[in-house]
C-alpha cells in the first residue's frame, strides 16, 4: 500500500536559543502510510513537527516534501502544498464559531462550493461538530476541540497530515474514537499521517511504522508491529 517517499527529514537539527532540541533527525514517510513518532517528554517530538512546518527553523539538515526542499519555505505556504499540521494542545480559535474555525482551515482556498462540500464531509466524520457549528470553539469539550482541530486541518485537503498528541488530556474512550477516525481518514481519503504521541501503545497499534525519539535523536526505527514486540520498547514506553 505504501507508495513513494513523500516526506523526508535529512539530519535535521534545531535550536531554541542555545539549547539544541533536535540533534540530527532523519526519517521518511511514504505516501499512504501512518507513521508514529514516540518518545518521552522533551525528546523533541513536537519540535520535529514544528520544524517540518517551518515554525521552528532547522539550523542544519533539510526537509523534503513531495520532491521539493521545504526547509526554508514559510509556514503559511505549506497548507496549500498539501502539508497541514494539527498542533499540540489543539489550538483552535476559541472565540470563532465551529463553522468559522473550519472555514479558517480552508483559508487559502477560493472555491466556495468545494469548501462547502468538504465542510459536509467533516461533519460526516464528526457529527458532534455539526450539532455545535454555531457555538464558540472555546466552549467545546476537550474531545470536541480535538475533533475540530482535525476537521479544520482536513478542510485544507491535505496530502500529509501531521498530528501532534491527539490524545492529550482526553478520556480513553474519546481517544479511541479519535484514533478510529484518524485511521478512517487515512484509508478513505488516502491521507498520509505522521503522528506524534506519548501514548505509544495506541499510536503504534494505529501505525504502519514507528520512530523512537530520545533527547533529540532517533534511537530506533522499525515496523510498528516489531516495535510493539520489542522488549526494550515495551519496558521503556509501554509500561511493562
Amino acid at each position: 500500500m505504501a507508495g513513494d517517499t513523500i516526506l523526508e527529514l535529512k539530519n535535521v537539527a534545531a535550536h531554541y536559543g542555545r539549547i539544541q532540541a533536535l540533534k540530527g533527525i532523519s526519517l521518511s514517510v511514504r505516501e499512504g502510510e501512518v507513521v508514529s513518532i514516540i518518545g518521552a517528554n522533551g525528546a523533541g517530538k513536537s519540535t520535529t513537527l514544528m520544524t517540518i512546518c517551518g515554525i521552528v527553523r532547522a539550523s542544519e539538515g533539510a526537509v523534503h516534501y513531495a520532491g521539493q526542499d521545504i526547509t526554508r519555505v514559510n509556514a503559511d505556504k505549506l497548507p496549500r502544498m498539501g502539508l497541514c499540521q494539527v498542533p499540540e494542545g489543539r489550538r483552535i480559535f476559541p472565540r470563532l464559531s465551529v463553522a468559522e474555525n473550519l472555514d479558517m482551515g480552508a483559508f487559502f482556498r477560493r472555491r466556495k462550493r468545494r469548501i462547502r462540500a468538504d465542510m459536509e464531509m467533516v461533519y460526516e466524520y464528526f457529527p458532534r461538530l455539526r450539532e455545535r457549528r454555531s457555538q464558540a470553539g472555546g466552549t467545546l469539550s476537550g474531545g470536541e476541540q480535538q475533533m475540530l482541530a482535525i476537521g479544520r486541518a482536513l478542510m485544507s485537503r491535505p496530502k500529509v497530515l501531521l498530528l501532534d498528541e491527539p490524545s492529550l488530556g482526553l478520556a480513553p474512550i474519546i481517544v479511541k474514537q479519535i484514533f478510529d477516525i484518524v485511521q478512517t481518514i487515512n484509508q478513505e481519503q488516502g491521507v498520509t499521517i505522521l503522528l506524534v504521541e506519548q501514548n505509544a501503545n495506541l499510536a503504534l497499534q494505529a501505525s504502519n511504522r514507528g520512530y523512537v525519539l530520545e533527547t533529540g535523536k532517533v534511537v530506533m526505527a522499525d515496523d510498528a508491529a516489531s516495535l510493539l514486540d520489542n522488549p526494550d520498547i515495551r519496558k521503556a514506553y509501554l509500561g511493562e
Binding site: I55, A75, P79, R80, Q85, F93, P94, M104, G105, F107
Partner: peptide, 12 residues
C-alpha cells in the same frame, strides 16, 4: 485568537 495556529492554516 492564535497566531501560530493561524500560520499553520496558511495565513501569512
Amino acid at each position: 485568537e492564535d497566531e501560530t495556529a493561524a500560520e499553520l492554516m496558511g495565513v501569512n
